[in-house]
Amino acid sequence: MMVTNESEARHLFGPLFEIEEQTAERLHARLASMADREGLLDVAYRTVDTPVGTLLLAATERGLVRVAYPNQDHDAALAQLAELVSARVLHAPARLDAVARQLEEYFAHRRRVFDVPVDLRLSRGFRQAVLAHLPHIPYGATESYTQVAAAAGSPRAVRAVGTACATNPVPIVVPCHRVVRADGSYGGYAGGAAVKQALLTLEAA
């Protein structure tokens, strides 16, 4: 609600309107670390460039809560976190440093298992049980939706396994890409079929 003419203000206070980028960045970084220290950084996020596109990474104080592919609309993912977890969301890369580094190692064939705390609160009930099972599928291996349903304790819930994988809030780190159709075809994937194929090809190499 600007009641004054902005050009008038600019005329009078011109130099005040020039805020150096490094000043803005310094202040933002300081706010993020103060917030973290005060226990107010409910959701920290950053992006990371990978061979399968720019990923959004978000973490609560409990652990990694969201990995979003470019086609999943990062703004929408952040809005969802604000709605479902907390509106205290800040761009704060430090909390995501470990997972960013491990992803880099994963794509460089130097890591097979992710070792970061994961917060599965965006998933519930049977879906969460499915996600809890997925890290037990070894690197380079796959299981069918039917096998995963049995492992998660509901052999007939094959379709629900598909839904759990499709709505996996932390793909790659929780490896839903290792769940494929019984006939060996890839099946769907949140990041797109091509990304699923790329991940399985990477792990097979």
Binding site: Y45, A79, L81, A82, A87, L90, H91
Partner: peptide
């Protein structure tokens, strides 16, 4: 409620 980051920016 939108992410606080948007308010800062």
């Amino acid at each position: 409620m939108r992410p606080f980051e948007r308010v800062v920016v």
